[in-house]
């Protein structure tokens, strides 16, 4: 099913979703991006940013208010059956039949994608191996752990060897071991040539997996590029988190006018300072603290990351939204 071309696997052009138009909620507001063959593209954003709505429109579950998504040259609005044939979708919530076995689930969905006979048997066997459920294939899914169900959820999306694998928050609510297994699976699939559209609100996952990351907030893409490109937007700024004996607001007053600090605020009970060459700034911060009797209990210096980018662009922390 996979074709070797350099054309984008997915082109999203000005997708808009407004519920109950004209005055309803604007969930997605003119989202555009494209995914090249073999690329892992992540949509990163807080809950409610519009990631799932965007994906729902791309895979044909929701009709866009405006815009279109073209998969392998087929418009999801005009040629939905052909477009869907090129996609494999693993929804956010595990969507499998608990009263069927893993093999029966895979066989059923395989048939929905037109697989039959030996080809179906062969693909079901391969996918069971890939997701590590070959020895549990005959068990009813209801007896599986949530991590195993998640793996099966992804396995179903892989059956017909799609051009584009869409994974909507596949690691939500599972144990670290299963999470690691899924991330490794995605990396392996990508190495095998599968293009992936991945949504997550975990910046570490986006950073580890993606060639390209689009940061979404309030239904819009506010930044898009590689991890390095995004971080560059924040500048060469270190991120200092200080815990003090006095309340952080008091410490903020002490440090906010120290030379070299570009931004200061309180977050999670800590005083957060952004500064160029943060290491060099530390002695001055300690000196100022000592002069007013402020005791520093801990210091953490971080280089800029996606969290900083989001904070830089929205003024809010990704994990707080």
């Amino acid at each position: 099913m996979r074709q070797e071309t350099n054309d984008p696997v997915l082109e999203v052009d000005g997708l808009v979703k407004r519920y109950d138009p004209p005055k309803g909620v604007l969930a997605v507001d003119g989202v555009s991006f494209s995914i090249a063959p073999g690329e892992v593209f992540s949509l990163l954003g807080p809950n409610g940013a519009g990631k799932t709505t965007t994906i729902s429109m791309i895979c044909g579950l929701l009709s866009p208010t405006a815009g279109d998504a073209v998969i392998g040259g087929y418009s999801i609005r005009r040629q939905p059956a052909q477009a869907k044939m090129l996609m494999g979708v693993a929804p956010q919530e595990v969507a499998v039949y608990g009263d069927l076995s893993a093999r029966e689930n895979l066989s059923f969905f395989g048939r929905m994608y037109g697989l039959r006979g030996e080809k179906l048997t062969e693909r079901v066997g391969e996918v069971l191996q890939t997701i590590g459920l070959a020895d549990r294939a005959r068990e009813r899914v209801a007896k599986f752990s949530s991590g195993m169900k998640r793996r099966l959820n992804i396995g179903i999306a892989l059956l017909h060897q799609p051009h584009l694998l869409i994974l909507d928050e596949p690691t939500v609510g599972i144990d670290p071991q299963s999470r690691r297994h899924i991330l490794d699976e995605v990396i392996a699939l990508n190495r095998a040539g599968t293009s992936v559209l991945y949504t997550t609100h975990y910046m570490e996952e986006a950073q580890e997996l993606s060639h390209t990351i689009a940061i979404m907030d309030h239904g819009r893409i506010i930044a898009c590029g590689s991890h390095a490109e995004l971080v560059k937007q924040v500048g060469e700024v270190d991120h200092l988190e200080l815990v003090t004996s006095q309340p952080p607001e008091q410490a903020l007053e002490v440090w906010k006018d120290v030379e070299g600090i570009t931004k200061s605020f309180v977050q999670d009970g800590k005083t957060v300072l952004w500064a160029r060459a943060g290491d060099a700034l530390l002695p001055r911060l300690f000196e100022r603290a000592a002069s007013v009797g402020l005791r520093v209990l801990s210091v953490q210096v971080q280089e800029p990351n996606l969290e900083s980018v989001f904070l830089h662009l929205t003024g809010r922390a990704l994990r707080d939204t």
Partner: peptide
């Protein structure tokens, strides 16, 4: 969620 999953098949 299986109905939605069926709807994303061809």
């Amino acid at each position: 969620g299986t109905l939605a999953r069926l709807f994303v098949t061809p």
